[in-house]
Design a protein around this nucleic acid. Structure first.
Length: 299
DNA sequence: CGGAGTAAAAGGCACTT
DNA sequence: AAGTGACTTTTACTCCG
C-alpha cells in the first residue's frame, strides 16, 4: 500500500505500508520508518504443520533477541537429595554441571550471534522485526545443531539475508556482504543451507522492488522508473524472467527504460550500481527487446 | 568511449546411479 | 554421495562505430 510520505533517510517518495507487520518501509532504500504501529501478524512464521501446532500451544510470543528468550531450563537445584544414594547424587550433580556447561556455551554463542545481528541490522537500517526474524532464524538453527562447526559470523550473515528476503526488503547479497565483511558466495551458501534445513519457503524477489530501490541512486526520473516497471510487468506475463537473477532483470529493465525515455544511463553505470555485470544486462536487454517488441523505441 | 557478442570457467539445481 | 546435464553469471576478450 503506497503512502503519501517522504522518506527521512533518502527523500524518496515510495513509502509503503506492509500490512501484516505494521511497518512503513521506504522502497528506495529499504529503511523502516515506523515499526509496529499495530501488529496484526504472528511473531513467527509457520513453515510446516508440526511447528505451527507447537507454536500455537506455546502461548504469548517470546522475543528472540535475548539469548534464552527470558526463560531458563535447568536441572533442578531445590530437590531433596538426602534420600538418594551417593551414586545417585553424584550422577545428579554431574548432570546439573553438564547441563549448565552446555547451556552456557550455546547461550554464549547465541549471544555473540545476536550482537553481530544487531550491528548489521543497525548499519543496514533494518527494522526491529527484521532483527527479530534474523535472531529467530539463528536460534532455530542453533537448536537444530546447524551452526556446529561453522563460523558464527557467516551463519549470521545468512540469517540477515534470509530475514530481509522474508520481509521483502530489497537488500542484495552485496549489501549484506559489504557490512558483514563476508564473501557474497559464502552468504548465499549459508542462506541456502539455512532455508533448506529449516524448511523455509521464500519466493524470489520481485525485480520491481529493485527498480524502486535503485532508481534514486541512479537518479531515474519518475517517468523512466514507471517505464521500467511496465517492462518488468510485461516480461513477467510472457514468463521471460523465471530462473533469472532478479537484480539483473531490474538492471536491464532500467537500462531499456532509460533508452526509451531518452535519459540514457550507460550499462557500465547501472552494472556498477546494482552489482551485476554488463554482460548480464546485455543478455537480459536482448531478450527484452526481442520478446516485447521494443526495438523500435531503441534509437 | 559505449556497446555487441563470444568462449571459457564457475557455480547452483534437478535428477540419477 | 558422487555424477550428470542443462542453465545462468562472470571473466576476459575481440570487434564495431
Amino acid at each position: 500500500m503506497a503512502l503519501n510520505k517522504k522518506c527521512p533517510e533518502c527523500g524518496g517518495i515510495n513509502m509503503s505500508h506492509v500490512e501484516e507487520k505494521g511497518e512503513v518501509i521506504c522502497k528506495d532504500c529499504g529503511l523502516v520508518v515506523e515499526d509496529k504501529i499495530f501488529d496484526f501478524g504472528k511473531e513467527w512464521r509457520e513453515f510446516d504443520q508440526e511447528k505451527a501446532d507447537s507454536h500455537r500451544r506455546t502461548g504469548a510470543p517470546l522475543t528472540y533477541t535475548q539469548a534464552d528468550r527470558g526463560l531458563g531450563t535447568e536441572v533442578g537445584t531445590k530437590a531433596d537429595l538426602s534420600k538418594f544414594s551417593k551414586r545417585s547424587k553424584d550422577k545428579f550433580y554431574r548432570l546439573r554441571r553438564w547441563q549448565r556447561n552446555i547451556a552456557t556455551s550455546i547461550e554464549r554463542n547465541i549471544q555473540l550471534a545476536l550482537s553481530e545481528i544487531q550491528r548489521i541490522v543497525s548499519v543496514l537500517g533494518l527494522s526491529k522485526s527484521v532483527e527479530e526474524e534474523a535472531a529467530r532464524i539463528y536460534t532455530l538453527a542453533a537448536q537444530k545443531g546447524l551452526v556446529k562447526g561453522r563460523t558464527t559470523e557467516r551463519i549470521v550473515a545468512g540469517c540477515i539475508y534470509a530475514a530481509c528476503r522474508m520481509h521483502e526488503i530489497p537488500k542484495t547479497l552485496d549489501d549484506v556482504s559489504f557490512v558483514a565483511e563476508i564473501e557474497k558466495g559464502e552468504i548465499g551458501r549459508n542462506y541456502r543451507y539455512l532455508t533448506r534445513n529449516l524448511h523455509m519457503k521464500i519466493m524470489p524477489t520481485d525485480p520491481v522492488n529493485y527498480i524502486i530501490r535503485f532508481s534514486s541512486a541512479l537518479q531515474l526520473s519518475p517517468k523512466t522508473q514507471t517505464k521500467a516497471i511496465e517492462i518488468i510487468e510485461k516480461a513477467q506475463k510472457k514468463a521471460l524472467l523465471s530462473g533469472k537473477n532478479p537484480v539483473g532483470v531490474a538492471a536491464a529493465a532500467i537500462y531499456t527504460a532509460s533508452r526509451i525515455t531518452d535519459e540514457k544511463k550507460t550499462q557500465q553505470k547501472i552494472a556498477e550500481e546494482v552489482g551485476v555485470t554488463e554482460v548480464t544486462i546485455r543478455n537480459r536487454y536482448r531478450e527484452l527487446i526481442e520478446n516485447l517488441g521494443l526495438e523500435s523505441a531503441a534509437a
